[in-house]
Design a protein around this nucleic acid. Sequence first.
DNA 1: CTATAATTCAAACAAACGTTTAAATGAGCC
DNA 2: GGCTCATTTAAACGTTTGTTTGAATTATAG
Lengths: 273, 273
Amino acid sequence: MFRPPFKAKSRRLPATSDAAPGDNVVSLSETRGAAATKERILDSAESLFMEHGFEATSLRSITAAAAVNLAAVNYHFGSKEELFQAVLTRRLDPMNHDRLTLLTRLEAEAAPKALSCEKILTALFIPALTLARDPRRGGKNFLRLLGRAYADPAPFIRQFLSAQYAEMIVRFKTAFGRALPYLPRKELSWRLHFIMGALSYTLAGTDALKLIAELNPHESDDDEILLRRLAPFLLAGLKTPLPDVSDVTRELDVELARRAKDDRARRTHLTRS
Amino acid sequence: MFRPPFKAKSRRLPATSDAAPGDNVVSLSETRGAAATKERILDSAESLFMEHGFEATSLRSITAAAAVNLAAVNYHFGSKEELFQAVLTRRLDPMNHDRLTLLTRLEAEAAPKALSCEKILTALFIPALTLARDPRRGGKNFLRLLGRAYADPAPFIRQFLSAQYAEMIVRFKTAFGRALPYLPRKELSWRLHFIMGALSYTLAGTDALKLIAELNPHESDDDEILLRRLAPFLLAGLKTPLPDVSDVTRELDVELARRAKDDRARRTHLTRS
DNA sequence: CTATAATTCAAACAAACGTTTAAATGAGCC
DNA sequence: GGCTCATTTAAACGTTTGTTTGAATTATAG
């Protein structure tokens, strides 16, 4: 009997994991015990969810890769959805916390002057890069998984990500607002939206576009090079003057007007024939 | 008996659809017949794939929404995967063809001078916008679906998209290369990658980030406004000087160095204790 | 009208899915 | 040692999945 207490916030831990939180013993030489089982499941799930997506990854493939019993997922996490959230939380939570900490420190260092956009963007990028470069954790896998989760239609994923990102986004938006006081708040919201989109999309590393870039395989795997190129690109967009004085919107208007005219012409031609 | 000939490239069409290709009779007042069945399936599949993704959408839900028999999908398209490809092809093929045509025309108009980045970006955006605004076709649904397909891990989707985009990407890359001759080809590849990513991500319209933008609901649905904001943003990034003289990379280096130092300090502290 | 091929239909298929069950196993405490 | 939990295990649960089948239906051609 004895139903799994997976809903309990803090249940009695097994003997193998009585290390205080904060110690980085993680799970070295820990090959059995409940905590080790949970971690093996999380690791396998992370790479399999990354590779095939949430729906297309079966619990059987996860438990097989983790060398644990099928029922272990439901016992330790409750359900497949909760497992997925646990996979995301494990790395996303520290990363976003890292971002906030770094932003706060940089703000304190720059006080009383406002932080530059360069430094704010740095606070956004560095924690992601740190995660990607950490060899202990499957950081690269995770960032890909995260990028995919952003585009996943499943409601529970979207809800979860919104909640996870909400606080961080607000903080960064006010920071950027201070750095770009001339920029209307709504325009800033758009640009921040574009930045987060480009970041998550780029880190997802969809190889569907690898042929666009003609990159050396090893180079496209280096996230540092990637962010080093992405950051100036996004920063230029962030700092650009308001769109209503831009050349490109004028070109858009020209073509839109031409299409409208063509459309009218085609319509009258059809009614006459 | 009479097995479905869904592999035959051009099989005899039913009586209701003997219109020559190119006529835009589409399927008005066509509520029965094989062609109408195929189109109803495509419409339902488009919106359901958009809403739930490929894996999470069942053939039963598609056929129910289309009011056709369950077996109709396998009869007319062969399999679920082929149906998905048909859904993408139906709109993506004309849209990319439209892009190439528009680019060619603009190049001819500007000859012998090189095309400006603004005009090239226009050739990239206008066909997508035209598709989105066409009320006859579920353009908006489709663009969302497309954005999601870009992030889908399924191999057959990635392969398919690569093939669909290959030609168009090459043409646009050479056009941008002519407009930005000072820019190294590899850097251009990166920036084009970022542009395609931001475009697909933005058009996907993931509402996970709606709270970032604090937008009016109706405003976030207007793809024209969206592209009007996105275009100047991306254009500024495209035209920005090389990253090795950028301020933001310097800031990235500062923080990376600091992290490396902290890391060394932490390591020595641990070995001493 | 009749023959013939194309399409639709209800039903069934085997396989895979997430989840649940109850017994077996394991380790820590008195 | 015996007791008590937490954990693991193998098996089965009931659904749902994409696909196939063969007959019924419909439309076209001669």
